[in-house]
Design a protein around this nucleic acid. Structure first.
Lengths: 173, 173
DNA sequence: GTCTATATTGCGATAGAC
DNA sequence: GTCTATCGCAATATAGAC
């Protein structure tokens, strides 16, 4: 999950994102985050001086994970749009966790909404460049958004993905 | 918004849902809900004895709004799937507000997750009956989910809907 | 860099007057 | 049916020892 799990700051972000995913905003208290990361609350606050800084740290890590994901997408060649949907249906990757954490935070934090808008923009640009068709790019992105939305309340998207692939085949994709 | 705005219980649910939509769970405190509905906290707690009961009331109202919506969909005839997507892109209707409130609550409350799963199930059944094609029904539902997801962080879905309609036209819809 | 102890605030809920 | 006053608790954040 973390790039370097021995780094306390990374472990704190991991704990924060995981608690957001599993228990929502009010489950991700400073006490709970510190305990999950194996430090005291004082230890946490040495690294992130306030909850706002912890949120900022989580959103910044999302941004760098998205940058990496965009590079991975570009490496997928012809299957780029399929790679996008397959990873949208995935659960438990660092990116997935980070993205769900951000969509929890977006409920109450404008910064998280902005981060999600930027993420969507980055993915749309890659899809649109690849497909050369804004209608298809937007439609595929919405399907991916839908799969994230459903994961948020515990629905596996494996079956959904199979249905979608059948429809894409009819569109020559 | 309310069926009967002079009914205090309805006004309390309206206030609760609106605060959830606009400020998330931690913005929807009993104090804030009571103030927005124009009563005191004690007044609120006379009608809903705890926050859990308020949540239950909101989810039950969602369920009845979905029942009504399913009937409206069936009245849309050939345009049923288009009606579904158009209403998914709508903002500010009682159903829309109630649904976004539930997706906020779903972060931390299993009951809300269950309510959303049932809502999706009801809509899927109508779409699938109408289209006679589970691949298309699931794909269209995911697109609708995606539009709800995006509304949650303040993205207008009017343009997105236009793109989607172009793709549906290619599929003979 | 990590800890404990504590100040402070705000929330959910109760009690009882009107 | 609605109000005010208040209790108890949990959460953020600070202070200072180690």
């Amino acid at each position: 999950m973390a790039r370097n799990p021995s780094d306390t700051k990374e472990r704190l972000l991991d704990a924060f994102d995981t608690l957001l995913d599993e228990h929502g905003i009010s489950g991700a208290t400073l006490d709970a985050v510190a305990a999950k990361a194996g430090v005291s609350k004082g230890g946490l606050l040495y690294h992130y001086g306030s909850k706002a800084e912890l949120i900022k740290g989580s959103l910044e890590r999302l941004s760098s994970l998205v940058d990496e994901d965009v590079e991975s997408m570009k490496s997928a060649g012809d299957r780029l749009h399929l790679y996008y949907l397959e990873t949208s249906a995935e659960v438990g990757t660092p990116l997935d966790r980070s993205l769900i954490a951000a969509s929890c935070l977006a409920q109450e934090h404008e910064d998280a909404k902005t981060a999600l808008r930027k993420t969507r923009e980055a993915w749309f640009n890659v899809l649109n460049d690849h497909l050369g068709d804004a209608d298809l790019a937007m439609t595929i992105q919405l399907i991916g958004d839908g799969m994230y939305f459903n994961q948020n309340f515990g629905l596996s998207q494996d079956e959904a993905l199979a249905h979608v692939k059948n429809v894409l085949a009819r569109l020559g994709l």
